[in-house]
Nucleic acid binder design. Sequence first.
DNA 1: ACATTTCGAGAGCACTGCTCTCGCTTGAGA
DNA 2: TCTCAAGCGAGAGCAGTGCTCTCGAAATGT
Lengths: 239, 239
Amino acid sequence: MNTARGARARARIEVTAAIKDAARRQLAAEGAAKLSLRAVARELGMVSSAVYRYFPSRDDLLTALIVDAYDSLGEAAEAAHAEVADAEHAHRWGVVCEAVRTWALAHPHEYALIYGTPVPGYTAPKSTVPAASRVALLLIAVVRDAYHGPGVARPTLPAELQAEARRMAADLAPDLPPETVAALVAAWAQLFGLVSFEVFGHFRGVVEDREAFFRHAVGNLAHGVGLVYPKSAGRGTGR
Amino acid sequence: MNTARGARARARIEVTAAIKDAARRQLAAEGAAKLSLRAVARELGMVSSAVYRYFPSRDDLLTALIVDAYDSLGEAAEAAHAEVADAEHAHRWGVVCEAVRTWALAHPHEYALIYGTPVPGYTAPKSTVPAASRVALLLIAVVRDAYHGPGVARPTLPAELQAEARRMAADLAPDLPPETVAALVAAWAQLFGLVSFEVFGHFRGVVEDREAFFRHAVGNLAHGVGLVYPKSAGRGTGR
DNA sequence: ACATTTCGAGAGCACTGCTCTCGCTTGAGA
DNA sequence: TCTCAAGCGAGAGCAGTGCTCTCGAAATGT
């Protein structure tokens, strides 16, 4: 029942999509700061006030792009993971992380939109939560599979954090030990720390072979959440 | 020869400082996006065009604030470290990291300015490098002391990364083993991943006791760079 | 004392987000 | 089938922005 109850309704979703597309193009080209509602209107041959029939404000347009960006990233990660769904767990972990990095480098401005400085009126309006969670859920799923399968080590946890870890586990993955969930959340944040530093240029003049560096760092993150590498030796690329 | 060769020169540095102060106030209050050159001019009772005598563009004003923010953060970290300069190395590491977090939470907009989305014309103009490096240098110093002292473990490194690690070590800390330097750089990025997620609100609804969580994660980072905790037992808060 | 530079003020340009009004078109109910 | 409200695009307009240019006045160096 999505399919157009009338020409008008159909036109509306088409125009809405066209606006988002033009906006996304501008975003990719110039960054969120320079995204101008009037410019997208111009590109579509309409007048600026007409755009307001579709998005009540510039920030609402941006919010729509945020959700799309989360989904685009989540989709990329999920697709990459699907291709190795029955490989070694540590390898799957690495593939997901590398998909995140690859997507971020290919869409730096969209990445900045979701993991950079939040927009001023930044209350993530609930509707973004599912899209925003996709990568995290993937990482959780990989560790869950490992936990219910052969090899996962149980990290240790100081006493003062065990209550909080239990809370997190109850929310995120009740079937995993709290220690693992806590390590997972930390690894999640640290993964995006690595990606952000690279995308935002903090590695410029510091790290040269960033891909190899990233693979290694991500392997250590996997180790931190308890994933063990197949070929025991020094944890390598997970290949 | 800094001290005013004339009333004019003195006035100039005073006005420059006043502009930066007003700008910093606006930045702290509303964020970089809403920082308006005309508004700071208004606050100082001057006309907008006059401000251009001191800063050639709005982005140049922002750049000046960026350098200041790096310095402010670096100073906070150094001060915190100085107070525990002869404590256990892992503890010193933790104190520096917590100082970074505390400063970031106290100055979210300034933090966003330096570790969030880079400004469009984002070529860090060399002059920012020393200020930007202060925290990293502190972390390196802590590990260096540990390495030249009693306890530091040597991380392992896959073959494919050893050349790059040697390169980094040559640039950053020739007296440390390449494996340690590589781990240090990763920990550096991961630290800011943790801080950014908290400041930018990605932990909202996920992590509740963020301070305890951070201490724990930072302890693991210390472990990752080879710092060993005094009381052997499970690595705890570093107390 | 003169010439030069430095500075603040003001006007102005091109642009932005956003509001409001005006007609035209569409579509659903009488 | 006709009607009337809702949806929509165009246009004008407001307040604000970054930035440029010109013009006098003040401070400076010779």
